[in-house]
Computed example of a mutant assay.
Amino acid sequence: MSTTPDALDALDAPAPPASEPLRRIRARYTERTVTVYQAYAPALGLPAARDGRFPAAWKRERMTWIKPSFLWMMYRCGWGEKADQETVLAVEIDRDGFDWALRQACLSHYDPDEHPDRGAWQRELKGSPARVQWDPERDLRLRPLSYRSLQLGLSGEASRRYADEWTVAIRDVTPLAQEIRARVRSGETAAAAALLPEERPYPAPEGTPGLGRVS
Rank of each mutant, 00 (worst) to 15 (best):
F54L: 13
A56W: 06
P136S: 09
G156R: 01
Y110W: 15
R160D: 03
A57W: 01
L150F: 09
L107C: 10
L176V: 10
V36Y: 01
G127W: 11
T174E: 04
S146K: 07
E92Q: 03
E124R: 15
A57Y: 01
S155N: 12
W100K: 03
A39Q: 03
D111N: 15
R103I: 03
I93N: 01
S155R: 15
P47A: 02
E137T: 10
A177I: 13
R160Q: 12
Y40R: 10
L125S: 12
Q38F: 06
D84C: 07
W72E: 09
R95K: 12
P136R: 02
P136G: 09
E92W: 00
W121D: 05
I170R: 00
H115M: 08
A48L: 11
A48P: 00
Y147D: 12
D117M: 07
F54D: 01
G97D: 08
A83C: 06
V173L: 08
W58S: 12
P116A: 15
I93L: 04
L46G: 02
V88R: 04
S108G: 15
A169E: 12
A56M: 08
R148T: 06
A169I: 06
M73A: 09
V173K: 02
V173N: 00
T64P: 01
E86H: 13
R50I: 02
D99Y: 04
D117V: 05
E137R: 07
L71H: 04
K126Q: 14
T167Q: 05
T167E: 00
W100T: 00
G45C: 10
A49T: 10
L125K: 15
W72C: 00
T167L: 07
Y110P: 08
P42L: 12
G156W: 02
R141H: 15
R141Q: 14
P136H: 08
S69T: 06
V168D: 04
P175M: 11
V36F: 08
A169V: 00
V91N: 05
E165L: 11
P116N: 10
A57V: 09
F70N: 07
S128M: 09
R131S: 13
Y75P: 05
I180W: 04
L46D: 13
S108W: 04
A43D: 14
